[in-house]
Design a protein around this nucleic acid. Structure first.
Lengths: 209, 209, 209, 209
DNA sequence: AATGAATGAGGCTTCATTCAT
DNA sequence: GATGAATGAAGCCTCATTCAT
């Protein structure tokens, strides 16, 4: 019964506008959350920065928390995507030294953070703020668990029981240092990133024989 | 109308009581801030936990932010005290290996965190949340700057220009890992602390020749 | 730009469709108002239940109140229609006892209520709720004034000045009892209806000599 | 440890003021609810009419519904009190004719309604408005069940199974007529009340032999 | 100084209504 | 005309802060 709309030109722009609006809201929310934190962020401020009305905001998100979760989820997805890409890259460069792979990974994350500045800020902001702290942990834990077996290959002498610990050290240390870099000026940030590579390398080298 | 208290001897006990009250308020606030964060903490809840009235709370602190700042300042003082103590300890054990000193320092900070659980939680909660983020940075920076010259002694070959960077790496990495340890169960926490020593040692060793 | 429809024959079906749409909206509104009351009813819910858009709803009704008034008016018309029918029925059965006529009238109203459940619910819901209370009264008053002369015929000894009072008693009592019956299960409802006949009969009998 | 405050003059007035404030809020709410209904009533309007701030309102009542329920409960209590008083009065006047007792009861309820004008309005307003309709019914049902046995004594020939029905008829009819009277001018109200006595008397007489 | 009732600004959210497509 | 996204006024409620006692 549903006639096939011959001309979608009417519908598409509408969808596009909606999509654009949602994107603007999410972006604005990301900024505001990043700047003042979840609690201090007001829906009104978000709507205003997005150039819309609160009504529109609530058309797409049932409440403030949902808005934050959308951002959070988008961020998680992006991080996972990047993470998986790095993993498969590493797999396809089997001959490459782990040091190089690790350096590249750090650079990739740093670049990602740069282009997702707000996102990263949100994550950190939230990672340690009550309700979402647990969820923040979860991401790092998931990554650590994903990295653990790789550590196992890299460092066969490391008891299996300590792999997750070592992976956790790497993830958490980098997570903190990348966040730190972001709060510093470009030059210092670069220096921190490069020094992070050094630190991780020195930490892992003895394990890798 | 106000009857003149004939004996002024009361003043001291009164002052004592005031001091005790302030302390109770600060303690209560620390707990509450640590539990639910700055925004979600209510002055009412703080006053109640302190066993006073909001009125009294406002007698001593002009507003919620000031209350937080008092805590913050107390925390800073305590950290600095600990830091100075560690520094002078190190000086008085001139023959000790820097590794041992560093291990002891990490343990000391960990113990401090344990006994100041609330303080630490407050600090982290706040360190990266908007208004106080900058102040949070400041502490770590101050410590890094204080450590830098020591790094200079330890690693004479390290260009002076990089001392602060290395010190910052140490401070921030430990800061993050200690916070992480606190969120984990006792056993895991211990493992993280010990592994932190390993990581820092491996990181610094090459610099120290 | 607007292509000129060559065939105007469409107009009639269009009007028909409009009329059908309006009817659907009114029906939907009746249900929703009956279920949750005027205030709690949302135009969105009404439009959705009517299978249209809010836009269409506002094409026909300037605002929510107008929508309610349309229902109200339709209800009034239906009640008046029934009332007039009962009156003319009574006139055409001149020989019938007033008791029988009254019993039939009560049954007729009860059936009407049953088949107009939503309408009745709306009426009662609204009859006594602020804005519409007065209008609710108006209907009962109108009916009482219409019945008064009949009472006059039935009870010639009743002073003319009391006819409206007696008519009002009958109308209001029945109005309340019919509403009550509707809130009870079928069996109880039936008992209430029958007992209402008894009550009205006993009330009027002494007046009718 | 709790020193017996020798002078309660400080505390008492405070309590009094609180009590007075609560009373003012309840009164204001009663009026507003009676005027525009539960949904349309705004907490702000209530606070303003009570001469306080919303803050105070929420100091005593957790939300709008609770405020209404307080009124409702007070009303129920008052009605029950009156009802019990009438019952015991009747018992102590064992020789009195039931007609007289019923007339007195109707007058008593009418007077009660007069002095509780707002209350009565609230009750009716609410009795038929969604959420509270059931509770509204409950009161009338309770009264009917309390009256049923009395009807049994009065009308020994009435099958026991019909006592509750008859009692319900009396309660609901009077409930509706008293509410009606309240919406009319004094003179008409008086006439309705007196006519209600007639109606109930005529209704019950045949049952009472 | 201590108390806690009172205040009211401001936040989140809903929903009647408008308007571009 | 139909659609439904967009708007924003307004309502409920919280909580930092003040102030009378």
């Amino acid at each position: 019964m549903k006639s096939e709309r011959p001309k979608e030109t009417r519908r598409v722009p509408t969808q596009d506008r909606s999509r654009a609006r949602v994107a603007r809201i999410v972006d604005a929310a990301t900024e505001v959350f990043a700047e003042v934190g979840f609690e201090a962020a007001t829906t009104e401020a978000i709507a205003e920065r997005a150039g819309t009305s609160i009504g529109s905001l609530y058309q797409f998100f049932p409440n403030k928390k949902a808005l934050f979760e959308a951002i959070w989820r988008r961020y998680l997805d992006d991080v996972r995507l990047l993470f998986e890409r790095l993993l498969s890259d590493a797999a396809s460069r089997a001959t490459a030294d782990w040091r190089t792979l690790m350096d590249d990974a750090i650079d990739a994350f740093w670049e990602f953070d740069q282009s997702n500045l707000a996102f990263r800020a949100v994550m950190m902001n939230v990672q340690r703020s009550g309700a979402f702290l647990a969820e923040g942990d979860a991401l790092n834990r998931a990554m650590a668990e994903r990295i653990a077996p790789i550590i196992g290959v890299l460092a066969p002498n490391l008891p299996a029981s300590r792999r997750v610990l070592v992976a956790t050290m790497v993830v958490e240390t980098l997570s903190g240092l990348l966040f730190l870099a972001q709060r510093r000026d470009e030059r210092t940030a670069r220096a921190i990133i490069d020094e992070s590579k050094v630190m991780i390398r020195r930490y892992l080298e003895p394990y890798a024989e």
